[in-house]
Nucleic acid binder design. Structure first.
Lengths: 386, 386
DNA sequence: AGTGATTGTTGTACCCCCAAACATATTCCA
DNA sequence: TGGAATATGTTTGGGGGTACAACAATCACT
């Protein structure tokens, strides 16, 4: 972000106010002032600007029983929204998400066979074209992809389960819909969402690891920002080696966390076929048989080794586990903590909390919407062009 | 850094100009203008401010053969300096480093036995008290410690080879010397130095891994900034597991990179006792015996596994190897690349270069000085108080 | 010597935030 | 019930900071 002009000051202040409202919900003008450190008159001017941009509204507060003149409550207008897109192997989910983080509408499109990137793009564009969007102001599209995404241009470098390799996605989807499009890895967006709205609220350094049917995805937030790396590929803990086993993962690498800890093995052990996430969690917790326990503990050993690598390399405050990894955590939390901290440097281990994911099925929609909202939050005046 | 006031604009612009000079050396006023994007008149005012703060001088340029009025060359004044401190098990090194990155003076203090933190602090304070510093303006002290350092307050959480655990260092040293003190891990400062002045110039995401007599240290730069993590402990690749071997490292963790790849084993194989770094490099390169080769390749396998973990988690553009790891790289670069990329996600692997360290024995002095200069670079007007 | 190009210099305009004075709305208390 | 206390909105003036335009200075080229 450019700095060093008086316009950049205005932009930074508008951004701070809008972000405060986005992260913490409606707030009085005086509270906005004290949290941003700006003067009363400045806040008044900033809020007036945001209101004239159509981003916020002011309402008279309910009486709250404190002395002094009541301060109007500033709220985000829910008409400002983003479109979250999540292609998976059997389904494409498209969600309309308000700037107030409300889930406005969800459309699921199933397909028989794994779609090509072109097909996914055209289906997405068709669904969006069919949405009733009058009354909404759409800031853009955020796409959560189960694979490695080049942040710069939204090209999907490799999404193994979708069989997409070096597929342009952001560009064509933008061309097909007319909206700006940003694309990122799904677990990275999960990390973002859990960090801002879930288990990791207020945390500056967080690791999110999700266990799904197709493998283990992960993403990290470092110093309050998504850890991207050079091209946007960072945070892939699932493909870090934790064993000398020759079993390979979806990327063909042997002995990785994803290769060693699988949902399929757990289902086989439990004798389940295709349970929902909550069924799996319940059945696993109920089954204290020796056989199941052995499988779980072996998985937790490998998971601990992997988490320890992340603890040593990233020094997070919090590790959030999603999917069946959350179930494994619930099964035997202390065992996982021991396994993790045994391979972690003691000072780093001391500061880590391991917690289950708090956001449910809307996790990726929220995360992808965050991605789409980011340019607006960074430069609120940019909506003038929408 | 606070934002949102007109003073912050001035600070950001002063900082941008000073940092440009720090990183890229002397520069004409017009070049400073175009690189920072500020107007001619603004640059004139900024440079005048920096000059009145005593940080820069302007000189008439040599004729350079281009049309137009010549632009004065702005240079950093070398009188502004920092004190770099590096305690090791057998020696304490104190270096006076100019803001123009010149090494002004180096003092080495040897001791017979490993010092306590208190002893290291009092020796450091005594050496600094004995320095002839008239004519210099000392911005502060930067300390590079072989261990995990809490960034916030400079407490050394664990420096295994020095047997320091939870030892306050920054605070007492500041009290003893009167200078502001910042403390960080030595390899992290190596990463910073290589990133700004060494093999990784211009790179935004870099991993530095150093192999020394006492183990493997590492640090990372992510998005142009030092990767700190929650408490400042991030970047410790040496303690990531790469093997199921029970051999433990200096932190007591089994099978880690540091446990599996040691300088001692290399020396034993080569039949050397205590060679200098360049002796070791030369002897290793000259020895193509099957026995040596076997040891080296096994080390490179483990190193590759470790580097792959970092590639997958951090997605760096460049990996810089120092110490005997640079010698291993020189011995068989392609083998290390294969070992690393075999366990790396292909898109992440494609963008990585592995290179030897470029900065020699002054690496840590430069890095520690960077740490001490950082507050000045961030807010140049703060020197007014020195 | 003249011309064109580039940059320093100066004065003005504009943007943005802050502080102070005043106005307003509420609670508290006698 | 009415004043005092409190907190905040509103208005106005001022200062810090950058950009712009006009002018001056200095170089290369012919």
């Amino acid at each position: 972000m450019p700095q060093g002009t008086s316009e950049s000051v205005r932009r930074a202040n508008l951004s701070a106010v809008l972000r405060d409202l986005y992260l913490h919900g409606p707030s009085s003008r005086s509270a906005l002032g004290s949290s941003s450190g700006r003067n009363r008159s400045t806040i008044a001017s900033l809020v007036a600007d945001l209101a004239s941009l159509g981003l916020v509204t002011e309402k008279d507060p309910e009486h709250h029983g404190a002395a002094g003149r009541p301060s109007p409550v500033v709220s985000l207008r829910p008409e400002t929204a983003a479109i979250a897109v999540n292609p998976e192997i059997d389904m494409l989910t498209i969600t309309l998400v308000g700037l107030d983080t409300a889930i406005i509408q969800t459309i699921r499109h199933s397909y028989r066979r794994i779609p090509s990137a072109e097909e996914a793009i055209s289906v997405t564009a068709a669904v969006i074209a069919g949405l009733e969007l009058t009354g909404y102001r759409i800031t853009g599209i955020g796409v959560a992809v189960p694979g490695q995404v080049r942040a710069e241009d939204g090209v999907i470098a490799n999404a193994p389960h979708l069989h997409w390799v070096d597929e342009p996605f952001g560009g064509p989807l933008a061309a097909a819909t007319g909206y700006p499009v940003r694309v990122a890895n799904d677990a990275a967006l999960g990390a973002l969402a859990e960090n801002d709205f879930g288990a990791g609220r207020g945390v500056s350094d967080l690791l999110y690891v999700n266990g799904g049917a197709s493998g283990i995805g992960s993403g990290a937030v470092s110093n309050g920002r998504l850890l991207r790396g050079a091209a946007g590929f960072a945070g892939e803990l699932g493909h870090v080696r934790v064993s000398s086993s020759p079993a390979t993962d979806s990327a063909g690498i042997a002995g990785t966390l994803e290769a060693m800890v699988t949902r399929a093995e757990l289902l086989e052990t439990l004798g389940l076929d295709s349970p929902t996430a909550s069924e799996l969690a319940a059945r696993l917790l109920a089954d204290r048989s020796a056989r199941t326990r052995k499988v779980v503990l072996r998985s937790l050993d490998h998971l601990g080794t992997g988490l320890a690598a992340a603890v040593n390399l990233l020094n997070p405050q919090m590790i959030v586990l999603g999917g069946f990894l959350a179930s494994l955590l619930a099964y035997e939390r202390e065992y996982l903590e021991r396994a993790t901290f045994a391979a972690s440097l003691a000072p780093s281990a001391r500061g880590v909390r391991i917690a289950p994911s708090q956001l449910g099925e809307n996790l990726l929609a929220i995360g992808a919407a965050q991605l789409a909202f980011e340019p607006l939050l960074e430069n609120p005046a940019s909506v003038a062009s929408i």
